[in-house]
């Protein structure tokens, strides 16, 4: 009955309906992505603890420390909000907001799995654009802008060095990353992420192993995680671009890193690991794609955490060297490979 009332309303007021659906979708999206990021933070602390032969959070919220993040959030919210005297105030204030908005923009175009209703696969995506792969790739590089805003406006030498490093790194890795996305699009004959997933009868990680490796490295660089966290190398430049931030502004910047880590891992699963594709599990066939999707996502996330604790940091000149001299030529090779083999998938 409710369903029929909604369809009736949609027929009468299509514009208002689209607006309301958009708002509801955004709210669901924001909560899903933020709760997901909280889960990622918890996962990282726990897995990291295990890898380092210690416990990780185990006090707040039972022996698994589930509420630790809530406690941290309360702490960050109630802290004094400090803006340095010499800071460029509007830019300083807007940087965390731009950072959060960027992740939401990415999240809007990314499908978070699919459900099967009546034998039909329905992807869970807010904005199913035709060029969503290109769009996501473009918006991801906006992250460097927010980092640069934060670093420049803080009026701090460490922040500024961190911001410069961030931009240098972004420029050298966006190009190979973009070329990799193009190679995937060529093989899938589409720039739509949903169609890219559906085109993966063979995972693209298998079809283009080189592209998969390059994309993974470029993604870690984009996310600014070890071994590419020169922007916030704490042993050299304190905390890099967010040195001067405190309280909830720092919380937003910090959280945005985990938001983008989650989104990056999802992107990797969608582009190379077959998304939600997998054998349909009987009985729970309704959510069978979700199960495959989350299993793949979990493996990618744990791999990212594992990399963080077991690798050392590159120097910034080595990072840019690697980007321009190794990754870019190899991504071109991968593009040629995709064009050649793409015919097979046609």
């Amino acid at each position: 009955m409710v369903l029929s009332a909604i369809t009736e309303f949609a027929a009468q007021e299509p514009k208002l309906y689209a607006f309301i659906i958009g708002l509801v979708g955004a709210a669901i999206l924001a909560s899903v992505i933020n709760v997901g990021a909280m889960a990622v933070v918890w996962l990282e602390r726990k897995v990291m603890g295990d890898l380092q032969a210690r416990y990780g959070p185990n006090r707040v919220g039972g022996r698994w420390g589930i509420l630790q993040l809530g406690a941290d959030a309360i702490k960050l919210f109630t802290k004094e909000d400090i803006i340095p005297r010499g800071a460029d105030k509007p830019v300083y204030v807007w940087a965390p907001i731009v950072a959060s908005a960027t992740t939401m923009l990415v999240a809007g175009a990314i499908p978070f799995g699919a459900v099967i209703i009546d034998g039909k696969e329905i992807p869970l995506v807010v904005a199913n654009m035709d060029i969503s792969a290109l769009y996501v790739e473009a918006v991801l590089s906006l992250m460097a802008i927010s980092a640069f805003m934060a670093g420049w406006s803080s009026n701090n030498k460490y922040s500024m060095l961190g911001a410069f490093r961030g931009v240098a790194r972004m420029i050298s890795y966006e190009v190979p990353m973009g070329v990799c996305v193009i190679s995937v699009a060529i093989m899938a004959h589409s720039l739509n992420l949903v169609e890219i997933v559906q085109a993966q009868s063979i995972w693209f990680a298998v079809a283009q192993p080189l592209g998969f490796i390059i994309f993974t490295i470029a993604l870690i660089t984009d996310l600014g995680r070890m071994p590419f966290d020169q922007t916030e190398a704490e042993e050299e430049i304190i905390a890099g671009y967010n040195t001067e931030y405190s309280g909830i502004r720092f919380g937003l910047l910090y959280f945005q890193e985990y938001n983008s880590m989650l989104l990056g891992a999802i992107l990797l699963v969608l582009l190379y690991l077959g998304g939600w594709n997998g054998p349909v599990i009987p009985v729970i066939s309704f959510i069978s794609p979700m199960i495959w999707f989350f299993m793949k996502l979990l493996i990618v996330l744990v791999a990212l955490i594992w990399i963080r604790v077991s690798l050392l940091r590159f120097r910034i000149d080595q990072v840019t060297d690697l980007g321009w001299k190794v990754m870019l030529p190899l991504s071109m090779v991968n593009l040629a490979w995709a064009v050649a083999v793409g015919l097979y998938f046609a």
Binding site: M226, E234, E235, V309, S310, L312, R313
Partner: peptide, 18 residues
Amino acid sequence: FLTLIGSAVFCPFLYMII
């Protein structure tokens, strides 16, 4: 020294502490 060129979360540092 390893935490300086890696980060404070670099595993072998903690193994050495043990």
